[in-house]
Write a protein that binds this DNA or RNA. Structure first.
Lengths: 167, 167
DNA sequence: CGTAATTAGATTGTGCGCAATCGAATTGCG
DNA sequence: CGCAATTCGATTGCGCACAATCTAATTACG
C-alpha cells in the first residue's frame, strides 16, 4: 500500500475552492460524484412518477415490467440478477403486481424452489402504454442519443468498478 | 406539439439490437440511462456501507453529516434544500442521529417554526474519520479527477433538466 | 445412497424517500 | 389590526432496498 502512490481522486474528496479557470469548481458535497448520481437518480424517480401513475406503477415496478416484457416468465432470481435487487425487495413488489392483475407467480415444475413470473393479458397489453412513458422521459432528459449513450456507458463502467472494488 | 419534430431520444427508448459497429449496442433495459443511474446509485450505496459501518452511519446520514460539517446549525429546511430530501425523510433520520449523540436539534428563537441542527463534539470529531471514507470511495470508483468532474457536471445538468421538465 | 452444503423465495426488521396531513408559527393583505 | 395564506417540521401511511433468517428443494460429495 505504501509503495503505491496515493492517487488523488476527486469523486469523493471535496475539491478545493480555488478557481482553476474562469469558472469556480464546486466544493464539498457538490464535488462528489456519488451525490450527483444520488440526485440524478431521485430526479428520475420524480420525473417518472406522474407518467407512471396512470398505469398504476411505481418506477421499480415499471423496471420489473420492462424486464418481463423482454423476458416473460423470468424467475424471481433472474429478475433479481437483472435488476440488482434481492427477494426482500422483489417478493412484496411482485405480490403487489400480482394483486394488480399484471402478473401471476407460479412454482416451477422442474425445480420447485423457483417461481416464474408470468405476464397476464393486462400486463402484456400495458406495454403499449409504456411507449408513451419512454417517449416522455426521453424528452425530459434533454439528451441527444449520443450524449445519453456516452453517459450510460460511463455509468455502467463505474457501477462495475464499484461492485468489483467491493469483492 | 404536432409541429415540433419528434426527437428520437435514446435515454428511455430501447435501442435497436442491430450492431452499428464491431460492438453490438445494448438493447432494452440496458439502453436506458435511468437504469444505468439507478444501478450506479445502488452500487455507491453498497460500496459505502462497509466504510460507514465503523462510524455507525448510513449513506444518507453521511450526506447529512457532510452538509453539517460544511454548514453547522443548518435548519431542517436548509438540509432538505441542500440534499433534495423532505422532512418526512429528514425528521426521523435526524432523530436517529440525535439519539446517536452526533447532533442536537434546537428550535430557532427568532422563528419558532424552524429547527437548527447542531453538531455535537462527537459529531465534529467524526469528520476526521470521514477523510478515510472519502479516500476509499475515491479509489473504489477508479476515476481520474477529470473523468469524475466531467461525469459529475453532466449528471448535475441532467438532474436540473429533469427537475425543470417536471415543473 | 445418505447427508451436508447450497440454492430459491418468502418473511422479519430497519432505515429511507415521498405524498398527504397536521399543529404551530409566521407572513401577507385588506 | 384581524384573518387568510403560507411556512416549517413532525407524523402517518405506503412502497422500496437490504441484511438476516427461515423453510423447502436441490445439488454435491463421501
Amino acid at each position: 500500500m505504501k509503495s503505491a502512490p496515493q492517487q488523488e481522486n476527486p469523486s469523493a474528496l471535496p475539491a478545493s475552492s480555488s478557481p482553476a479557470a474562469s469558472q469556480p469548481l464546486p466544493a464539498g458535497l457538490d464535488a462528489m460524484l456519488c451525490f450527483a448520481i444520488y440526485g440524478a437518480a431521485h430526479a428520475f424517480t420524480r420525473t417518472y412518477k406522474p407518467l407512471l401513475e396512470p398505469l398504476g406503477l411505481t418506477y421499480p415496478q415499471y423496471l420489473v415490467m420492462l424486464t418481463l416484457w423482454e423476458d416473460d416468465a423470468s424467475t424471481v432470481k433472474q429478475l433479481g440478477d437483472r435488476l440488482g435487487l434481492d427477494s426482500g425487495t422483489l417478493s412484496p413488489l411482485l405480490k403487489r403486481l400480482e394483486l394488480s392483475g399484471l402478473v401471476t407467480r407460479k412454482r416451477n415444475r422442474q425445480d420447485e424452489r423457483q417461481v416464474n413470473v408470468h405476464l397476464t393479458d393486462a400486463g402484456l397489453a400495458m406495454k403499449q402504454q409504456a411507449v408513451g412513458v419512454m417517449s416522455a422521459i426521453g424528452q425530459a432528459t434533454g439528451c441527444t442519443r449520443d450524449e445519453a449513450n456516452a453517459m450510460l456507458e460511463e455509468l455502467v463502467a463505474l457501477k462495475e468498478r464499484l461492485l468489483k472494488a467491493g469483492e
